[in-house]
Design a binder for these strands. Structure first.
Lengths: 144, 144
DNA sequence: AAAAAAACGGACAAATTTGTCCAGTATATA
DNA sequence: TATATACTGGACAAATTTGTCCGTTTTTTT
């Protein structure tokens, strides 16, 4: 569904969202440990998210990554997915055709579109804050 | 969503379903041309489907691949997907966790499950015959 | 100012997926 | 029975994704 990179990206963002609620930032190694991901690979993904201003990075001692508290409710999962995986999740044809739309559909087009639209809706209506809250409300996990 | 191999596999199966309605079989090269896929790679996929008895292969002149007419309504898309991509589409966690279920969920588990269940339902309730019919009812395409 | 901590960025490496090639086997037809 | 046709299966190659390494830059602390 999503690439590994994107999965790590979402998990890292949720972890940062939870830290943000505490007013904390987190270092690369802390994040990678918390979400059980390969450190150096995670670094690449965090850099990407930082370049797109979804998270903020700080160098030097006491540095790390951070999501400003006031951004928490504005960061949709769809933003993260778009930055890392692009928009193929939304636009792509289920059967891999380059050109597939209502006027020139593949035989699975309409069934597939229905599901993809729901996925899109879900990703747009879910924020990193929602998922951080989820971590509080019940025991939920970012690794294993 | 699906692998390339799986996309080709579904497209090839739908093409074969349409041929089956005419009582025809189709050769590898004919199929690859019809669905615009790499010939040798398509061969691998057809072999896989044949080994799992989703399609039948015949060697020699007049040979090719075929779906028995009477099987048409019994072949669900989920069968094809399972043979080629396995069941990760159904079982996998949206955030890539190895262990993710209702009692130990990732923060996205329930939202994700809802969508995946619909996908599953759609793949199970759609047969290759349904898609072949789709090709008749309106202009729909298997390539481009 | 020096040292240490932490992100950055580019090059490289491994793994997986996608795709190719070709010799072998089975089969229909002449 | 010879020949041509078409699928089979294994080895190989290219492309993409995933993951690593390391020197550089920035910033904090001493």
């Amino acid at each position: 569904m999503f690439s590994k990179a994107c999965e790590y990206g979402i998990r890292a963002s949720v972890y940062l969202a939870r830290q943000a609620e505490k007013g904390d930032r987190a270092s690369l190694t802390e994040i990678a440990k918390a979400i059980d991901s390969p450190v150096a690979f995670t670094a690449k993904i965090l850099q990407l998210l930082a370049r797109h201003e979804i998270i903020i990075s700080y160098k030097g001692p006491t540095g790390g990554y951070e999501i400003p508290k006031e951004h928490l409710s504005g960061i949709q999962l769809s933003h993260i997915v778009k930055v890392i995986d692009g928009d193929k999740v939304y636009r792509g044809c289920g059967l891999g055709l380059k050109e597939c739309n209502a006027s020139k559909p593949c035989p699975l087009h309409f069934q597939f579109k229905a599901i993809r639209d729901e996925l899109k809706e879900m990703l747009q209506s879910t924020t990193v804050q929602d998922l951080a809250n989820e971590l509080h409300r019940r025991p939920a996990f970012l690794k294993r």
